[in-house]
């Protein structure tokens, strides 16, 4: 279970800085408010979609969830563990597929997966067994002993996902996982996530960020719409349709996410 409340984060844009006032070319520091007020509640056995346009603050929010950057304000709890005070305990309960998902090209897929298993504190045998089980689940058995150097996008994605799930975490966080995947690979991923949601699959808590409406409609049990660093709506797809009085989810999303832009246009 993941709970994010009133999360906020601002950055000082590059170019500005403490010394910029002293130099001739320096611009004054520009503060970018990436995340203003993001709220999210993702229960177990449930796929929660984090839907928002590019630059809405999805990736920044998920990076804060993973403890990579410290939030300016707000609370993040993973299974009741505060990410701010106990980041490592929280990370042990999370499998994160981040925006950056680079593999080690000189290592085989198996070595990539087992390395993360060991970093998560697994024994060697357990990590190897888990790598094989995941390879079966993602249908990447033949890839396991190959170096990841020549992998296709889909193969990389599968390896990165297996790497993130190696310690069988109760919470799975995926940042735009379908980016660069073809139809078949996307379908396979969807099937895997659906299975992970079921009690047999472990009733995982899955948070899934995307900017693609169809993904959300097909997969997610509930949606959190983020725009301009704020959570602007939350609920099931049907609830959001009812809230906006629209038939089409895309229209509903545009209404919810681009309120300011629509107001300006009128």
């Amino acid at each position: 279970m993941i709970r994010i409340e009133e999360l906020a984060k601002s950055f000082v844009a590059p170019g500005g800085g403490p010394l910029s006032g002293l130099t001739l070319k320096g611009r004054p520091p520009r503060v970018v408010q990436a995340v203003r007020d993001v709220n999210l509640h993702a229960p177990d056995g449930h796929i929660t979609g984090l839907l928002g346009p590019n630059g809405a603050g999805k990736t920044t929010s998920l990076r804060m969830l993973a403890g990579l950057i410290a939030p300016d304000a707000g609370r993040i709890h993973v299974d009741g563990i505060d990410v701010r005070t106990q980041p490592r305990a929280a990370l042990a309960r999370m499998g994160v597929l981040s925006d950056a998902r680079g593999l080690y090209p000189r290592l085989t897929a198996r070595e990539n997966i087992v390395y993360y298993g060991r970093l998560q504190g697994m024994e060697r045998d357990a990590a190897h067994a888990r790598a094989e089980a995941l390879a079966q689940m993602f249908e990447m058995g033949p890839l396991l002993e190959r170096r990841t150097d020549g992998f296709s996008q889909g193969e990389r994605m599968k390896t990165a996902l297996a790497r993130a799930l190696v310690h069988d975490p109760a919470n799975i966080v995926l940042d735009e996982p379908t980016n660069g995947l073809d139809v078949l690979a996307t379908r396979a991923l969807r099937d895997s996530l659906r299975w992970l949601r079921t009690p047999e699959g472990g009733a995982k808590c899955i948070v899934f960020s995307t900017h693609i409406m169809q993904e959300v409609e097909r997969l997610c049990d509930s949606v959190v719409v983020v725009a301009h660093g704020r959570t602007v709506a939350a609920g099931t797809v049907d609830e959001l349709l009812a809230q906006t009085r629209e038939q089409d989810f895309e229209e509903a999303f545009v209404k919810l996410a681009f309120v300011d832009e629509l107001a300006l246009a009128e």
Binding site: A66, A100, Q120
Partner: peptide, 8 residues
């Protein structure tokens, strides 16, 4: 590096 730091 980013995924590496998401290990405990």
């Amino acid at each position: 590096l980013e995924p590496l730091l998401m290990n405990p």
